[in-house]
């Protein structure tokens, strides 16, 4: 079986018809399900947050069997993720897609746990520290996409769990927790 880096590709990835959107409903549903799982799995293990439809993406083509997904199929598989709340289109033209292997709500929970683990119940931390600091190393927050982080912060802000305050530049935006 093929590997992409340390990622083990599923068997269907080597079966050519899975690269053509199937016309029969039942077959297509199964096909879409397999692709949805594959995309989420891959993005989770590789920490990929954004997929650009028109750019090269390792899952979109398989040189071994000389097949690649048409734009229509890419759109179909990602749209299926969007309809489940596991992805979001970042523009109206469906050119970029935000992949949520954790839903925003789950990211918010991870953020709260992070605050508790680091004694930040009443503390202040900058957004950059959350994304790249020592505290977040080894956690899922390390290297998190800025858009997703902002969405999770916003959600918590609405619930009164924290306040985001602006600094002089984007770099020193900060968060004050109040748990």
């Amino acid at each position: 079986m093929q590997n992409l880096g340390n990622f083990k590709l599923p068997h269907f990835f080597n079966y050519p018809p899975y690269f053509t959107l199937q016309p029969v409903r039942d077959t297509r549903e199964k096909q879409i399900q397999l692709w949805k799982d594959l995309i989420l799995d891959y993005c989770r293990t590789q920490k990929i947050f954004v997929i650009a439809l028109e750019e090269e993406f390792p899952l979109f083509s398989n040189p071994v069997i000389e097949r690649s997904l048409t734009h229509e199929s890419r759109d179909a598989f990602l749209s299926a993720l969007v309809s489940e709340g596991r992805a979001e289109w970042m523009d109206k033209g469906h050119r970029k897609c935000l992949i949520l292997w954790h839903r925003i709500q789950d990211w918010a929970d991870i953020l709260l746990q992070f605050a508790k683990d680091n004694g930040l119940e009443d503390g202040v931390v900058t957004i950059e520290e959350i994304r790249t600091g020592i505290e977040s190393q080894g956690t899922e927050l390390h290297g998190i996409d800025r858009t997703i982080l902002n969405r999770a912060l916003k959600l918590l802000e609405q619930k009164g769990k924290l306040v985001v305050f602006k600094g002089t530049s984007a770099d020193d935006e900060g968060v004050k927790f109040s748990l």
Partner: peptide, 30 residues
């Protein structure tokens, strides 16, 4: 196709549609 026994494949470069049959060429076992 309707019975779910075949799948179409339009991706070959000769442009001809291929009909694949998972029951004769297994997907799950390499």
């Amino acid at each position: 196709l309707d019975e779910g026994l075949a799948m179409i494949d339009d991706g070959h470069r000769d442009g001809k549609r291929r009909y694949w049959f998972p029951c004769v060429s297994p997907i799950s076992s390499s």
